[in-house]
């Protein structure tokens, strides 16, 4: 709690600063793409959101796994807090992808490997959120959710490598690849700034959610003691 109090203003400040700088470069100070024209600006939202949709899932699944195996309460709180943020990033990824697909591919949606796997990712997030709230005993819910989150982890490499494994409309990786990124610095700057802004946002909102959850735990414990006449 003390650590979160110390980190909160930093994460919030960084989100704002990086977000404003990222938006500046993304919308003003970067060139249109020679093939995709101005629609390339959709990339500065779409790609960082897609990275975060995977990152949040991995954090959520690992935290849930740590909570399941070592029964660490903070791990459960981190997993629970990550899920809705990851789901939000997944929704942004899917919607921004549709708005990019329509002008470039002529379609809002195609049932292609990567798009379908990203949709499955959204259902995994929603399934996890539904499961952890589905039981009267929150511990049982967290256990069931952790199992789902860990099984769903298989989807993460499927999304990452889907563009290499299957024939697809989706363009392959251009940043994280062998032989260095195939993207010009003028586009790399806004992309990375937005990526770090999203990451700072995630840390900020995760800390808020974790504090809310810890406080809710205290309220539950006090009510229980009160009901048993112990206080």
């Amino acid at each position: 709690m003390k650590l979160s109090r110390m980190l909160l203003p930093w994460a919030g400040g960084l989100t704002l600063l990086l977000g404003i700088a990222g938006l500046w470069f993304a919308l003003f100070d970067s060139p249109p793409d020679y093939q995709q024209g101005e629609t390339v600006r959709i990339m500065y939202v779409h790609v960082p959101a897609a990275w975060m949709s995977l990152f949040c899932y991995v954090v959520m699944a690992i935290s849930a796994g740590v909570g399941l195996i070592w029964k660490h309460p903070v791990a459960d709180v981190a997993a629970k807090g990550s899920a809705p943020i990851g789901a939000a990033f997944t929704i942004v990824t899917l919607i921004s992808g549709a708005f990019w697909g329509k002008p470039m591919w002529g379609k809002w949606w195609v049932w292609d490997a990567r798009l379908t796997a990203e949709l499955v990712l959204l259902f995994l997030y929603l399934g996890y959120i539904a499961l952890i709230h589905a039981f009267d005993d929150p511990k049982r819910g967290l256990k069931a959710g952790a199992v789902l989150a860990l099984v769903g982890l298989i989807n993460v490499p499927i999304i990452k490598f889907s563009v290499d494994w299957w024939t697809t409309m989706h363009q392959p990786a251009s940043v994280v690849k062998m032989g260095g990124p195939a993207i010009d610095a003028s586009m790399m700057v806004p992309l990375l700034l937005m990526a770090f802004a999203f990451k700072a946002y995630y840390i900020y909102v995760l800390l808020l959610r974790m504090r809310a959850e810890v406080t809710a735990g205290k309220v539950r414990a006090l009510r229980l003691r009160q009901a048993h006449g112990a206080v």
Binding site: G37, V45, I95, F99
Partner: peptide, 18 residues
């Protein structure tokens, strides 16, 4: 946005809103 205003701006708007 080079004629793509109807695609670029909603993306930024929706991402911001979410």
């Amino acid at each position: 946005m080079g004629g793509y205003a109807a695609y670029v701006w909603p993306v930024y708007g929706i991402a911001f809103a979410v």
